[in-house]
Every structure is written in structure tokens, then in C-alpha cells.
Amino acid sequence: MNNEELEKQYSPSKWTHRCSPDEVVKQHIMIVAEESEKAKSEIECQIDRIYGDTERQKLDIFGADTLPGDAPIFLYIHGGYWQMMDREISSFMVRPICKAGAVVVVIGYDLAPKVSISEIVNQCKKALSYVFNLASHRGSSGVYIGGHSAGGHLAAMMLSVDWMSESMQSNSMIKGALLVSGIYDLQPLVNTSVNNPLKMTQETAWENSPLKHLDAIKKTSSHRHIIVAVGQHDSPEFRRQSQEFQQKLKDGGLSSQYVDVADTDHFNVVENLQNEDYELFKELIKMMKLNINDVVDDMAKTSCN
């Protein structure tokens, strides 16, 4: 594939079936921002909890003061090609997930070009260590990690970590993952404009690719269920990467499923998690062993501090 074709394949907005590329990005930001504000106004939350040394190394926790201690925790990592988006507009899926009975944590991280892809991965490890401590303190039934696009890549990288060596936490703490339209081999991005702020070489791109760490993922994930999802109107390359990654997980003996979400593109495939009738939302709730019908009656916001 020449560089021009690679550029097109890894430009998700060019493949939307709904509107122009510029419009779909604007709509996405508007929708996730509006829904995130609703979550903060309606769901009890703890905002701007610090897990690291820089301004973006913060996380938001929803439902922890309302839900029982053993409630599962869903940790979400936003996308944006490691150079855009933010935690502050990434809590759009919180309301239905909390109401179904799970605590939700949304993490932020520094962006390129300020930091490298390796540093972003390290920051996500720190954030997850923070959440493990929260889960242990609460007596949570388990942590489930999710992410979209670049966040899907980062969530997949977290599956490869030996958490006992990293933070003296059991690998069994992570029970499952929802990876939505992720990138699992970063090497094709090296010769695209996506790499301008990242400045990855082929070597650093491969070192930070979940595909390189399949053996580690297999070793740490025998007890986990991993959902790999992609939109019908994602680009052929995004779809190929998701299909191949899930197949390798399956071939490695892991519990995994591939979900090809009809009539969605790279953006509304994750936006729709705000809807409890949505296919991926139902799969997430089922993975966390929750029942959509047993919603929490009173998730009213009492404080957001």
C-alpha cells in the first residue's frame, strides 16, 4: 500500500456513510461533550482525581459513593490518535452503565507531541494501578477496561501487563475488555500524517503494538473475556486490524468475540454506548455479569468534587 492509500485508510472520517468528514468529527465532539456534561450533572461523581504528575494525568470516578462496594468497575480510555480529545468529554457512556450497576472511571493522559507513545502507555499503567487500588479498597468484583480507537490500542496494551510485577496487583483483577475500533499494529501509521506529532520509528511503533505482545496477553488473560468491536463503515484497514487481532486471540485459546456493528462508522460505533438498547452496550453489561433490567433506582448526583 502506498503512502497516499495508507493516509486514506487511517483517516476514519473519510469512511463515514452519514455526512462529510468534517461534519462527522464536529458531530462526534458535540455529542460526546453534551452527554458527558449530562453524566456529570446527573450521576454522583468525583472529578479530577490525580494519579500522576502532570495536568492531564487525572481521572473521573462515577457512582462510587452510590453503588455497593462489590460493584464492577469499568475503566474507559478515550481515543483521538494519542494527540486529541480529552477525559473531560469522554464520560458520555456513564449514565446507562452506572444505572446498570457498574462504577465508571474515565482516565486522561498527556498527548503527543508533548509525550511519546511509550510515555502514554506508561501513564495508562499508572492510571490503572490507581483503579486497582480503588477496586481493592471497595472489594469490587473486578475491573473491565474499554477504549475506542487509540484508546482501544491502549486498553489492549494494558492486557499485556504483568500487574504483579508492575504494581503488586493480581492479573486476575482485570476480568475483561471492550476494544472498539482499535489499532493493534502501529507500524502502518509511521508513514502517515498521524505520525507527525508522534514521531514513531518502525521500531517504536512495533514495540508499542499489542500484536507484538500477544504472548504476554495470552499469559495474563486466560481468565478474561475480550470483545473486539468495529463499525461496518470503519475503513478496510481498521476492520482488518480488528478481525486479525480477535482471530489471534481466539487462536491463542482466549475467550474473545468479534462484533461487527451494523450501520455504524468509526464515531457512532462508540457514541451509541450512551443507549442501553445498543448492541455493544448489551454485550458490555453481559460481560460484567449485570442485568440491564436491574437498574439502580437512585443514581442522582449528590456531589461532583
Rank of each mutant, 00 (worst) to 15 (best):
M1K: 12
E7G: 09
S11H: 10
H28C: 13
M30G: 12
V32P: 00
C45A: 15
Q46T: 13
I47L: 15
I50P: 04
D60T: 11
G63F: 06
L67P: 03
P68M: 04
P68L: 11
P72V: 07
F74A: 04
M84H: 12
S91K: 08
V94K: 02
K99I: 06
A100T: 11
A100V: 09
V105G: 01
V105C: 07
V105D: 03
L111F: 12
L111C: 13
K126D: 14
S129L: 15
Y130L: 06
V131Y: 00
F132E: 02
L134S: 03
S141R: 13
V143Q: 02
G151M: 02
W163Q: 01
S165I: 10
M168P: 02
G176H: 01
A177L: 03
A177I: 04
A177R: 02
V180L: 09
V180T: 09
I183D: 00
V190T: 12
N191Q: 12
T192E: 12
T192G: 05
S193Y: 11
P197R: 05
L198Y: 04
T201K: 10
E203I: 12
T204S: 15
N208H: 14
S209W: 11
L211Q: 14
H213A: 06
S221D: 07
H223E: 13
H233R: 08
F245N: 01
F245A: 06
K250N: 13
K250H: 14
Y258H: 11
L273A: 07
E276F: 09
D277L: 10
Y278R: 04
E279D: 12
L280K: 00
F281I: 07
K282T: 07
M288P: 01
K289Q: 14
I292C: 06
V296S: 13
M299L: 15
S303T: 11
C304V: 10
